[in-house]
Computed example of a mutant assay.
Amino acid sequence: MNRQQLRAEREVAGAAYAKAVETFREAWARLAAIDRTLQNQNVAQGEAIRSWHFASRKLLEDGLRALQHSDFAPRIIVNDWHDRAVELSDKQIGAFKP
């Protein structure tokens, strides 16, 4: 494989990576939302939900920083992830019927 082919493959791999990060963000937000909803005092019925290892937005932000790539995913913003989960969870809580 020559340099030009490697650069072309890098572009293809980078585009796939950027798409995978977005897919992962949506899957993470869905699961985080459900966990958050199940922990809500109006929804929970004494059941413990095992969730993420991190306990704060700061730790989430640190974890997401490891996924950033200078060219293909340079700005993975914790608010984009966290706020999406909260949005989904708020809808779930609002629609919850005991």
Rank of each mutant, 00 (worst) to 15 (best):
R36E: 09
T37H: 01
T37Q: 02
T37M: 12
T37W: 02
L38W: 12
Q39W: 06
Q39M: 09
Q39G: 12
N40M: 03
N40Y: 04
N40D: 14
N40I: 11
N40R: 11
Q41F: 11
Q41K: 15
N42A: 13
V43L: 06
V43E: 08
A44R: 11
A44F: 01
A44W: 05
E47G: 10
E47I: 14
A48Q: 00
A48E: 02
I49T: 11
I49K: 07
I49E: 01
R50D: 05
S51E: 00
W52Q: 07
W52H: 09
W52Y: 05
W52A: 09
H53P: 00
F54L: 01
F54R: 10
F54M: 08
A55Y: 15
A55F: 14
S56M: 11
S56D: 02
S56R: 13
S56N: 03
S56L: 09
R57D: 05
K58A: 11
L59C: 03
L59E: 14
L60A: 13
L60F: 07
E61S: 14
E61C: 01
E61W: 04
D62K: 14
D62Q: 05
G63L: 12
L64S: 05
L64T: 00
L64C: 00
R65V: 02
R65P: 00
R65K: 15
R65E: 09
R65G: 12
A66E: 08
A66F: 02
A66K: 15
L67S: 14
L67E: 02
Q68C: 10
Q68I: 00
Q68M: 14
H69G: 06
H69Y: 01
H69V: 05
H69D: 15
H69E: 09
S70Y: 10
S70D: 12
D71Q: 07
D71M: 08
A73V: 03
A73K: 05
A73N: 01
A73E: 02
A73R: 08
A73F: 01
A73W: 03
P74F: 08
P74W: 05
P74I: 12
R75C: 04
R75M: 14
I76M: 00
I76W: 04
I76T: 10
I77A: 12
I77M: 01
I77E: 11
I77L: 06
I77Y: 05
I77N: 10
V78G: 13
V78S: 15
V78W: 02
V78I: 07
N79C: 00
N79D: 15
N79I: 08
N79W: 02
N79H: 07
D80R: 09
D80C: 02
W81F: 14
H82W: 15
H82S: 06
D83N: 06
D83Y: 06
D83L: 03
R84S: 10
R84L: 13
A85R: 07
A85M: 04
